[in-house]
């Protein structure tokens, strides 16, 4: 249906935003790309008193590398994640995730900050930043604070963001020669929200042993789900058919997926196991994959 009556104001700097938020009170919301927020207005799932459009705040834009950290501004659009050379070089997981997020016209507007702030349990980017062990940079009138991505998400559509705070950027540790990163998912229609998905980040030593592993599933719980048992099943072992099978087996205790429109918990568990095999096999040398 049509959107509810609401106010709108564009703010051009962070200082202007803090003043505006103080004056407007808690019923006002922040508008970035709007690709989820505006759809919720159509369903009347939210009826904000007004929207503050932050899309022209220059301080929230841009992708840069400093030392071993890749900083991605909150207003970076999904299409930009998919085409930015710094993202491709230093956080290939995010470059691989971009084409999986909705459709081209949505990717041209939707932003990484907006997706993380929404914390949809079936969305790709929350799982990616948790898998990458990224840091969420949160800004408010009082300054900046940094929160590890795993602590930032607090359940279904719920985050550590407090009233008066916004996401300013995401800081990602840059990939090394040992990094292996990929994302896989199963959807009903290309670009739809995932029935189940997996963002996998491993560090593999020169001798083939897995040094660290973070397997983070989406669409199978209330948020980005870290599979501690499956991840641990890989560490200290060579990545091969046996360790992959061990990770798949450990998933049974890691995941407790609720049923949804797509199917019951057992279907979700099955999909998670299949995706685990696909993701980890993609890290094997071609000869081993064929075997």
């Amino acid at each position: 249906m049509k959107w509810p009556a609401m106010g709108y104001a564009r703010v051009d700097s962070l200082d202007e935003l803090w003043r505006a938020l103080d004056a407007a009170g808690p019923e006002a919301q922040i508008l970035a790309g709007g690709q989820s927020l505006l759809a919720t207005l159509s369903f009347r799932l939210s009826e904000p008193s007004g929207l503050f459009d932050i899309t022209r705040i220059a301080a929230l834009r841009g992708v840069s590398v400093s030392g071993s950290t890749l900083r991605i501004g909150a207003l970076t659009r999904h299409a930009e994640l998919g085409s930015d050379p710094l993202v491709a070089a230093h956080a290939p997981l995010l470059a691989k995730a971009a084409p999986l997020i909705a459709h081209p016209a949505i990717r041209n507007r939707g932003t990484i900050g907006g997706s993380l702030a929404l914390a949809d349990p079936a969305a790709e980017l929350p799982a990616c930043v948790v898998a990458l062990d990224a840091t969420i940079v949160i800004a408010s009138k009082g300054g900046e604070r940094r929160v590890p991505a795993a602590d930032f998400f607090q359940g279904l559509f719920s985050t550590d963001l407090q009233p008066g705070e916004i996401i300013a950027a995401v800081e990602v540790p840059v990939a090394t020669a040992a990094s292996r990163q990929t994302i896989v998912e199963v959807t009903r229609r290309s670009g739809d929200y995932a029935m189940a998905g997996l963002a996998a980040v491993l560090s593999v030593q020169a001798n083939g042993q897995v040094e660290t592993a973070r397997l983070v599933y989406f669409g199978v719980g209330s948020g980005a789900e870290i599979a501690g048992g499956a991840s641990a099943a890989l560490v200290g072992r060579p990545l091969d058919d046996a360790s992959i099978a061990a990770a798949q087996a450990a998933l049974t205790d890691d995941l407790d997926p609720p049923g949804d429109l797509h199917g019951g918990p057992e279907l979700k568990r099955h999909l998670a196991r299949v995706l685990t095999g696909r993701a980890l096999s993609s890290f094997l040398a071609p000869a081993e994959q064929a075997a």
Binding site: R10, L38, S42, D53
Partner: peptide, 11 residues
Amino acid sequence: AVRGCLVLAAS
């Protein structure tokens, strides 16, 4: 290319 229904005219 964008979804026109997900863009505020006011913006």
